[in-house]
């Protein structure tokens, strides 16, 4: 099998056009000469749309569908889908059309000897200005923190070789950063400018909860990119800064005591100094625990990825 097309149907995003979208995808690939299989992953319970989808599935026996009993992460959905399919090249799509069909074909054709994973960079976005602004800010932050060059990480559509997902450990919401994580593992990545196509994109706004989630995701990515094998570096940096603030305040207070003969015993500032030093020790010791976890639990995970053996 050449292609595995994975359609992730998220419950809250599920809308009338999804089955139509799957059908379009099916027809798009049917026109091409290469073999393909299509799998639909329904993430969470919901009878909504089920009949239409079942009708579609009955008509096409190369299309599979899986339904999770309860809502789970994208990462679990993808790993499951990967197990159920056998295509060399994996095409992942969301519940609705995010980029135009031509762009999708362009992405698929971009996979060659030199490229292992392709992600779209949506141009001429049709969603709200606020969303675009947030998206830009978010991507700029990601670029800065991970020292990468991707402009559009939040698009669900990605095309990659099977080995990419087999070698990159993703969990939770880390799928959106697949290309960055793959890059760190040494896979060759590419970003292609695509035409944005999103019919219902105009109506949605991102809420506050989504903001917090996004920032937690970015932080997780940042930590995973640089510190999984050496957590002490991260925590000790925080610890050292906090301790130094404490030490500095303490020195200041003691200098006042010695040179100006102030009474310092009841100064809140001295308490603040002690407080900061205690905080510093707490941060550093958390790093130590992290280091123990990395040493005892992370060692069987190979750090390197092998491209060739002769």
């Amino acid at each position: 099998m050449k292609y595995s097309i994975i359609v992730l149907l998220e419950l809250e995003e599920m809308f009338k056009g999804s089955v139509q979208f799957i059908q379009n995808l099916y027809e798009l690939f049917s026109k091409r000469q290469e073999s393909f299989e299509l799998i639909t992953i329904i993430n969470g319970v919901g009878d909504f749309m089920k009949d239409e989808l079942t009708a579609f599935l009955i008509r096409h026996d190369t299309v599979k569908a899986l339904e999770f009993n309860s809502k789970t992460s994208q990462a679990v959905c993808l790993k499951t889908a990967l197990k159920e399919t056998s295509g060399e090249i994996v095409v992942v799509c969301g519940s609705y059309q995010q980029i135009s069909s031509d762009s999708l074909l362009e992405l698929i054709d971009a996979i060659d000897d030199e490229v292992d994973i392709v992600t779209p960079w949506r141009q001429h976005r049709v969603d709200s200005v606020l969303n675009q602004f947030q998206s830009k800010l978010f991507n700029a932050l990601v670029r800065k923190l991970t020292a990468s060059t991707y402009h559009d990480t939040s698009c669900t559509v990605k095309v990659f070789r099977r080995e990419v997902l087999e070698n990159v450990e993703i969990y939770g919401n880390m799928y959106r950063f697949l290309s960055i994580l793959a890059d760190k593992k040494g896979f060759k990545t590419k970003e292609i400018k695509c035409e944005h196509y999103e019919q219902h994109g105009k109506s949605t706004y991102y809420g506050l909860a989504r903001y917090i989630n996004i920032f937690i995701d970015i932080f997780t990515l940042y930590f995973n990119t640089w510190f999984t094998r050496k957590p002490l570096r991260f925590f000790s940096a925080i610890g050292v800064i906090l301790s130094f603030i404490g030490l500095f305040i303490a020195l200041y207070v003691f200098a006042q005591k010695i040179f100006l003969n102030y009474s310092i015993g009841d100064r809140p500032l001295l308490l603040l100094a002690i407080f900061f030093m205690v905080l510093g020790v707490q941060a550093a010791s958390a790093g130590l625990l992290g280091e123990i976890i990395a040493f005892t639990h992370g060692r069987n995970r190979k750090e390197y990825t092998v491209e060739k053996l002769i």
């Binding site: 750090e303 990825t305 060739k308």
Partner: peptide, 14 residues
């Protein structure tokens, strides 16, 4: 025998 890494991982990993 030879092993080729996908990218530079440092002497320890090698």
């Amino acid at each position: 025998k030879a092993i080729k890494f996908r990218r530079n991982y440092g002497q320890t990993s090698a």
